[in-house]
Amino acid sequence: MKHILITNDDGYEAVGLKALIDALSPLAKITVVAPATEKSACGHSLTLTKPLRLLNVDDDFYKVDDGTPTDCVFISLNTLFKDGNKPDLVVSGINIGANMGEDITYSGTASAAMEAVLQGVPAIAISQVCKDKCHEIKNGWDFALAKKSIQQVVKKIFTKEFPLDERKFLNINIPPIDVDECKGIKISKVGYREYGNDTHRHVNPRGEEYYWIGLHPLVWKQSDDLMCDFESIKANYVSISPIHLDMTSHDDIEKLKHWFK
């Protein structure tokens, strides 16, 4: 029987995590290792300055006390899966909110998948795009399209093979629509995200100044071929992007050599 390790960055009690467990339990043995608290936008961070506790919540279900998604994957692969007994797949999500464009670099959801492929395990990050600051997700969204999509992808992986080479993972984003509104799956490149600055200054009751970073609207630069992840979602497609960890700008190597002469 296949074995899937599930994690997320919204915390072990997140509704998206529960939906993912429900979707994948019929397909494989499931082990869950998730952060004890929400770790959104923590990136590919590994905790090095303090000890972490792996706490048992239920059968094959654990939380890492104050750990990041990267910690969850790293610790579980080196404790729960010992002696080369790795899971067949790591799936991270279902994240509440999009992970498209350069947001992938902030994403704890995507970073869990990054850590998995660094450790030699195929991985998927899956995120549910929201309409309005995720209010609809928190008020009873059924994740039907996300569950159907991840089942379809995982079944194909288990029937065939993982479609990417080492140190590459699949990044899936689900449009905020019902199943019957979806036009299908589109393989998309990562879009060019445009950022603003939503930083709010406040003063606490002791008169001390503090800042709170808010949410940025999903704004992007239109691509010439209309094939980026943002545009796929806008057109009511499930977006799947192949992501690789080699961040070298290969096109600029010769340019940089010439610049240094």
Rank of each mutant, 00 (worst) to 15 (best):
D22Q: 09
M100V: 02
V121Y: 04
E13G: 03
D83F: 10
D22N: 10
L89F: 10
T70D: 06
F61T: 06
P26I: 01
Y211V: 00
K261D: 10
N99I: 02
S241K: 05
L77C: 05
H44D: 15
E181H: 08
I174M: 14
E166H: 10
D198H: 05
L46H: 09
M100C: 02
G191S: 00
F81D: 01
V121R: 07
L54K: 07
L54Y: 08
I4E: 04
Y62Q: 11
L89C: 10
Q151T: 01
V219A: 06
N173I: 00
M227Y: 14
F169N: 07
I96V: 02
P176L: 08
D132Q: 15
I6E: 11
V15N: 15
T7S: 15
P217T: 00
N139G: 03
K148Q: 04
P175S: 02
G16P: 03
A19W: 03
G101R: 05
H202M: 12
T105Y: 13
T68I: 02
D58M: 04
H216L: 11
S76W: 11
V64F: 14
Q119Y: 15
I213L: 15
N78C: 00
N171K: 10
E38V: 09
N171M: 07
W259N: 08
D224L: 13
K160N: 08
I4V: 01
K39G: 07
D198G: 09
Q119R: 14
M1H: 09
G43V: 01
L20G: 04
I126Y: 12
K63W: 13
D252L: 12
N8E: 05
A235H: 11
Q222K: 14
L218N: 03
E13R: 06
I174T: 05
P175R: 04
E254G: 11
G93P: 03
F260P: 15
I150V: 03
H216R: 12
L48D: 10
Q151D: 02
N8R: 03
H202N: 13
I94T: 02
G11M: 04
D22I: 07
I253R: 02
L245Q: 04
D224R: 09
I96N: 04
Y62G: 04
M247D: 12
I213E: 15
K131I: 08
S92W: 08
D88G: 13
L48H: 06
K133R: 05
D224A: 12
T70I: 12
E231Y: 01
F169T: 02
T49M: 08
R167K: 06
V15R: 15
N204T: 04
S232E: 01
K155M: 11
P69I: 04
A235D: 15
K186S: 09
T109M: 09
H250R: 03
A110I: 00
D224T: 06
S149D: 02
L80D: 13
H44K: 12
Y12H: 01
L5K: 08
A110W: 05
F74Q: 10
S92T: 04
